[in-house]
Amino acid sequence: MENKYGRIEKAAFLKRFMIPVTTALLGWLVLHLVSEHLGWIESRVMYKFAMNVVHVVLCSYLAFNGFFVYRAMCMRGAGLAERIAGSYITPMAYAIKEIIRVSEFFTVGESFYYCLCAYPVLGMFVGQAGLLALSEILCRVYYKKRNLYNGNAVTVLPVAVFIASMTALYFLFFYDAGAMVFFAYSELYKLIFK
């Protein structure tokens, strides 16, 4: 695919890929560790406040971090494949952590299949796709204004990905409170594992 961001200087791999990805990963790790270690707070009010804040931030971080990682990589001249791969590193790390965690309860096969459950892993992956598409459109608009992007800002592919992602999120979480998708997921589980 032609790189229409050609006028943006391509930084070294460390700067354009490793730094944004590692920063995102470290941010998640710190939030995760903090969220696991708040039991020492004696005051009930403070404990509740801290738990609420940390978990909302952690959840939002996992849901939206791809949007910012994608943009940071774009600014440093990373190609499309790098931008997508880099944006999915933190969600992938989270998915691996979840597979290891649920392997306490499930077989190896089930632990991987667990990631196809809408909440949290599949939902996060699907939502991330829409955010990357949105991030791509916004990057194009931003750089087009500065004559650093030489194509149309709004094209079929990112718009289609965004619409598909939001539609999938609607069915995963909102239509029938997600029960219909969950039912299909359970039926598929029975076919594979029962």
Partner: peptide, 21 residues
């Protein structure tokens, strides 16, 4: 209970299906 907080459903594996977010 003391250990409860408003966003328990955000903990890993707590919401699977059904409970409103």
């Amino acid at each position: 209970p003391r250990e409860y907080f408003s966003f328990i459903s955000f903990l890993s594996g707590k919401i699977i299906e059904g409970a409103p977010p």
